[in-house]
Amino acid sequence: MNMLLSPFALIGRQTLALLAMIGRFTIFVAQTLSHMARPPFYGREFLTAMVNIGWLSLPVVGMTAIFTGGALALQIYDGSSRFSVESVVPQIVAIGMVRELGPVLVGLMVAARVTSSIAAEIATMKVTEQIDALTTLSTDPLKYLVVPRFIAAILVVPALVGVGDIIGIYGGFAVATGQLGFNPATYIRNTVDFLQFNDVLSSLVKGAAFGGIAALMGCYFGMHSGRGAQGVGQATKSSVQAAAVLILAANFLLTSLFFST
C-alpha cells in the first residue's frame, strides 16, 4: 500500500516544496524592492558589482558573440543561396543577433558567470556565519549584498548586450566580407538601414530583464543555501539552472510582447 502511494506522496511533497519556494522567492523580491527605496545605499558594493558583472564579463561576451555572428552568417548564406537570395545575409544576421541571439546568449553567459559566482559567494558567507555577522553589525544583508548586485546587473547587462550585438554583427560582417565575397560598404549600409529602433530597444530591455533575473537568482539561492560545502554546491547549481530557464522563458514573453502584433 505504502509502495503504491509513495509516488503520490512524492509528487505532493515536491508540489508543496515548489509552492513554498515560490512564496519565499516572492517575499524575497518584495523585500529587495522595498530596500531599494530606503537608505542607506552602499555605493562601494554597487561599484564593485558593476565591475564584476559588467567589465569582467566583456571577454566572454565578446567571444560568444563573435563566433555566433560568424556561424550565423555562414548558415544564412547557405540557406538563402538555395533560393538565390544571398543578399539578405546582412539583414538577417542583424535581426537575429539584435533581437534574439545577442540578449539570450549574453543572458546565459551572465547566468553562467555571474549567477554562479554570486550564489557561491553569498552561500559561503551564509555557511560561515558572515551573513549573521552582517546582521549583528547593524547591516541588513539584503541591502548590503542583494540590492547593489541587483541594480548593477539591471544597468550593466543591457550595455553588455549592446556590446554583444555589435560584436556579433561584426562577426557576421567579417565572415561575409572575408569569405563570402560581400562588399563591406554595402554590408554595413544594409545592416544599419534595416535595423529599427524597436529592435535595439527590445534587445536592451531584454538585457535589463535577464540581468535582473541572473542577479536575483544568485542572491536568492545563496541566501537560502543549506549548510556545509554541499549546501553551497547545491545553491550554485540551482541558481544557474533557475536563472537559465527563467531567462529563456522571459525571452519568449518579451519577444511576444515586442514583436507579435
Binding site: E129, Q130, D132, A133, L137, S138
Partner: peptide, 14 residues
Amino acid sequence: LARFGMLFQGGALF
C-alpha cells in the same frame, strides 16, 4: 543591535 558586539564561534570574518 547597535548596543551589541558578537564574536562568532567560527570568527565569521568578511
